[in-house]
Design a protein around this nucleic acid. Structure first.
Length: 414
DNA sequence: TCTGGGGTCCTAGGACCC
DNA sequence: TCTGGGGTCCTAGGACCC
């Protein structure tokens, strides 16, 4: 048996923990650059504010109903997420952190318990220790636990798929697009063949599913039938890509600003890379103008690095060179970014024959840099290439304080 | 005027090898 | 009458997830 624990309206709920006056009020959280709606409290959902909708489109509705709007505050959400995960690890043994607001638990060692009571204990404890509401779904496979969690959200917060009959009943009630692994395209496809519910999908012929939806689709069907195909993964696999991209706060036309931005993204990506203990062999640099406007254009350049590296100055140099090569005067760029790929572990890399590089010195410099920035905050030390003004940086006009991660933002009780 | 960011897996098809 | 068989590696693109 697996449990899926999922925080309700996670970002919106995080905002509420430290501002209880937002309780019962509609709250939404915006994406980076204050562009789209990415989280909504139940009250906001009821008003008809859709997930992913551009802020400017729903703005009249939001103002009419006095909806509370927040820019996203990942410092806060990341820290609250850790608290939830730590709580779960105290309550059960095997936990897979699936996303910032969700975790799977393997309940193999807990089958002697009353699972429903146990689910309630998880829910109540997380609420008490972190202030966040969660839903708990339990089923024979991860896909069924997900499904149960879906149901839990609509009822009182806990659903356990104990018996075959109950599982079947819930499958028959669930639209197939709500199944984990079935997205918009497959939903459309399945509808053509008259498959509308999770139950109907689970009944489809294996060879037919395999042919049209490949092995992943077949796995999903098997899981719905109660046959586990997707194991719990406690240790995350090493990352295969590290990306860093942002929309600009306003269009960028100057080469120098574009270079600054990409230098900053390269710096941040290099930090992530070192955090994973990996080196990159490949870099993709891209930037483009607005796809919503006439004359949409952009550039992307893949660079095969001559030597695997996580050394910030190297990455900054290649990234800015790519920008200089592909930049075209007269374009108003709205977004830029880079992706590091072919990540390898330094221990098993091939050195080039004539390698003039003093690795020890470079490693020591990066360690010092990371240590200072960890202790004193991001960008305490930074490369001049990323500029000092950053007029292009993203908008975050309605951000709440970093209550749990900055001493200056601590909540004051007066 | 204003439309997010970061990931994974799978397959088909081409290039190439013996 | 009618062009072998069996592989690997790589990439682009499509699907999905949160």
């Amino acid at each position: 048996m697996f449990a899926l624990v999922d925080c309700n309206n996670f970002y919106a709920s995080c905002e509420r923990v430290f501002q209880p006056r937002l309780e019962k009020r509609p709250v939404v959280v915006l994406s980076n650059n204050d562009g789209c709606i990415i989280a909504r409290s139940n009250e906001a959902k009821k008003l008809g504010i859709g997930m992913g909708e551009p802020f400017f489109k729903v703005r009249p509705l939001i103002e009419r109903h006095g909806v509370v709007v927040r820019s996203s505050n990942y410092e806060l959400y990341g820290d609250m997420s850790q608290r939830v995960m730590q709580t779960l690890m105290r309550l059960t043994s095997d936990v897979e952190i699936y996303s910032i607001d969700e975790a799977f638990c393997d309940l193999t060692g807990f089958l002697h318990l009353d699972l429903e009571a146990y689910a309630w204990e998880i829910k109540d404890t997380v609420k008490r220790w972190t202030g966040l509401p969660v839903g708990v779904g339990i089923g024979k496979t991860k896909t069924l636990a997900k499904l149960a969690n879906n149901t839990a959200k609509k009822s009182d917060g806990v659903t356990v798929l104990q018996t075959e009959a109950m599982t079947k009943a819930i499958l028959a009630m669930t639209p197939v697009r709500d199944v984990w692994g079935i997205g918009r395209q497959y939903d459309k496809f399945l509808e053509k063949y008259g498959i509308r519910t999770a139950y109907e999908f689970a009944q489809a012929r294996d060879s037919w599913i395999r042919k049209h939806m490949h092995v992943t689709g077949l796995r999903t069907a098997q899981e719905l039938r109660g046959i586990p195909c997707i194991p719990l993964e406690e240790q995350p696999d090493p990352k295969k890509n590290i990306a860093m991209s942002r929309m600009f706060g306003r269009p960028v036309t100057e080469l120098r600003e574009l270079e600054e931005a990409i230098a900053m993204y390269a710096t941040r990506a290099a930090e992530k890379l070192r955090g994973e203990g990996l080196h990159a062999n490949n870099m993709l640099v891209f930037f483009y103008t607005s796809p919503f406007k006439e004359g949409f254009t952009g550039a992307s350049l893949a660079i095969s690095l001559p030597r695997a590296t996580s050394y910030t100055p190297d990455l900054v140099r290649y990234a800015t060179a790519a920008v200089r090569q592909e930049y075209r005067r007269g374009n108003a760029y709205i977004k830029a970014g880079l992706i590091l790929s072919e990540l390898t572990s330094p221990a098993r890399e091939q050195l080039t024959l004539f390698d003039p590089v003093n690795d020890e010195k470079r490693i020591a410099i990066m360690q010092a840099l990371d240590t200072v920035n960890r202790k004193w905050g991001r960008n305490t030390l930074f490369y001049a290439a990323s500029g000092t003004q950053n007029r292009w940086s993203m908008r975050r006009e309605r951000k709440s304080p970093s209550y749990t991660t900055r001493i200056s933002d601590l909540l004051k009780v007066v």
